[in-house]
Design a protein around this nucleic acid. Structure first.
Ligand SMILES: [Mn+2]
Ligand SMILES: [Mn+2]
Ligand SMILES: [Zn+2]
Ligand SMILES: [Zn+2]
Lengths: 136, 136
DNA sequence: TCCTACGATCGACTGAGTCCAAGTCAAGAA
DNA sequence: TTCTTGACTTGGACTCAGTCGATCGTAGGA
């Protein structure tokens, strides 16, 4: 993610201050922020950035594969800058904290062909749920 | 799910026509409906039923463990009457169709203790994504 | 049959996200 | 360097999913 700005320039993106601060926010903390949290952090550096631009930029980063969308609850989507290292998520049912986890098996291998119903299955995402040490 | 009404009565539920039609809608089709779809089907039998009542009843059924909430996209939650047979979901990225699937392994077993960060992990839900035969 | 607490209703409200018309500016051309 | 232009940004209105609360209705017990 560190040379994200270079990769974006290479794809013909016009480099604006808004896009730069959004990329910097995501680059800075490897956490899972909502769009409004990204907006709040971006606005600390560039006070007049709009929510619409944050949504636009996040959407573009997602379709470029630079950022992942995570929807673990029915609430706001979260944006995951750790897109180049495959992983899954462990969510605390108490406080909502999300941690990256790395199971030892690819769950795709556990779905037999007769359970695929003719689908071209390309991805398996696992959400583990439980209580974190603080909430237990 | 067939004697759901009996179980609810046993739990002290007041049996109203609204709760009956919501339970019948869920009982009738083993698909994954949104709250508004449940409302539309319920309203075919009981035209005056309100959205608020459908939301209330679905929420109660979920906390009783009779129905599962599924949030595969960032859109409306879906309600799964198949709560007594553990399974996972296969979602078409094209049209959004959802199918129940049964992997051969429990993904909980694939999460080593050093990847649990002190959490009490109780559940693992897998979402497989791909293209259905029609969308491929 | 009557009573009443539990449930249903409607509409106002919230939160998350989208859309659009109008204004701005990054970056290539000259 | 300045000009030009279309890509980008903005604020606000709007949509969609869901929640809340005051008031009304009724299931089911006495
Ligand atoms: Mn992550
Ligand atoms: Mn299901
Ligand atoms: Zn917690
Ligand atoms: Zn499809």
């Amino acid at each position: 993610m560190s040379d994200l700005l270079e990769r974006l320039r290479g794809r013909g993106w016009r480099m604006t201050s808004q896009r730069r601060v959004v990329a910097e926010v995501l680059d800075g903390e490897h956490v899972h922020l909502t769009a409004d949290e990204v907006h709040a952090r971006a606005a600390r550096r560039l006070p007049e950035i709009s929510r619409a631009t944050v949504y636009n930029t996040l959407g573009e980063l997602v379709s470029l594969g630079e950022v992942l969308e995570v929807a673990t609850d029915g609430r706001a989507k979260r944006y995951d800058p750790n897109a180049h290292h495959p992983h899954h998520h462990l969510v605390c049912s108490g406080c909502g904290t999300i941690r990256d986890v790395h199971p030892t098996n690819d769950p795709l291998a556990d779905l037999p062909v007769e359970e695929r119903f003719g689908f071209t299955v390309s991805e398996a995402e696992v959400t583990y749920r439980g209580l974190c040490p603080d909430c237990a």
